[in-house]
Design a protein around this nucleic acid. Structure first.
Lengths: 152, 152
DNA sequence: CTTTTTGCAAAGTTTTTGCACGCAG
DNA sequence: CTGCGTGCAAAAACTTTGCAAAAAG
């Protein structure tokens, strides 16, 4: 049987010199139960209910990022949100609709080969990538540009 | 002879219903003379010398983004920076070194085909993309992981 | 002349910090 | 034990807003 995601998380913490604490588990669970990236203020809000202090959240996110457990991605055109990365969540890229502003996940990106080539051609060694695509989502293509964005 | 970038900028403003003002030209010039993305606070600082009010900068960036003249990208793991987009600046992707934290430009990405396929396969119509690659830059590969980051 | 843009100043939010205590290893 | 992790409270930094004056077309 496969190891639970939370067990993997504990190991990832330890192997990065971070201790396993209740707060870190809470942050992990909140991220795990949301499919969309969460901004720092959102995390602060969601975790306040569990007694987490804002300062704790702000101190933790860079650590988890550094440890390769989460990564920050752009949300819309304005904010940075955190997402769990593989193996806690499968790799995916994002599509931002210019008309309605919504962000969609794109699975099975198929960009790996091209990304590796791009990096190697320039002397870099890639370990991860994230692509953000822009354009029109299916809804907005149908409605036509300039139409009212769909009620989200 | 080709039209100057500033003339193109003026046209882009007008065609988006934005007026051509000295402040907008100043912002454009600051972005044009920096190859790296500039964050809002950086822009505020750089333009303060020219008499620009912070509020003006904060109000302007979303307009220029909406008009497709600049776009926001992640800088390092923490901030959002603004860059001019094509035709004011050639398309390029970014490589963030996990070891030293520096961000590099990657020209001629060669990702277009794969990106278009990815989008169409999911019913989206792409107009632009931006990829962020992570890994080790040439310097840090040489030095070895864990070494001191090069003095930037 | 009409409408957009800007500066100013105040208010609101988000982030960072220092320090002392408490828990993980 | 020992030192990392956390809460708290204050400070700093960043952003947003309303309004009246100035500027663009």
């Amino acid at each position: 049987m496969a190891k639970g995601p939370e067990a993997a998380f504990r190991e990832a913490l330890r192997s990065n010199g971070l201790r396993v604490t209740p707060n870190r588990l809470r942050v992990f669970r909140v991220l795990a139960r949301h499919s969309e990236p969460l901004t720092a203020p959102q995390l602060v809000g969601l975790l306040a209910g569990e007694g987490l202090n804002p300062a704790t959240v702000y101190r933790m996110m860079p650590e988890l990022t550094q440890a390769g457990i989460v990564h920050p991605v752009m949300v819309g055109h304005e904010h940075i949100g955190y997402e769990l990365v593989s193996p806690y969540r499968p790799h995916h890229d994002h599509f931002v609709c210019e008309a309605c502003g919504r962000t969609f996940d794109l699975a099975e990106c198929g960009l790996e080969d091209a990304v590796v080539r791009l990096a190697e051609r320039n002397g870099f060694r890639v370990t991860a990538h994230h692509a953000e695509l822009h354009g029109l989502c299916p809804d907005c293509q149908r409605i036509g540009v300039g139409a009212e964005p769909p009620k989200v």
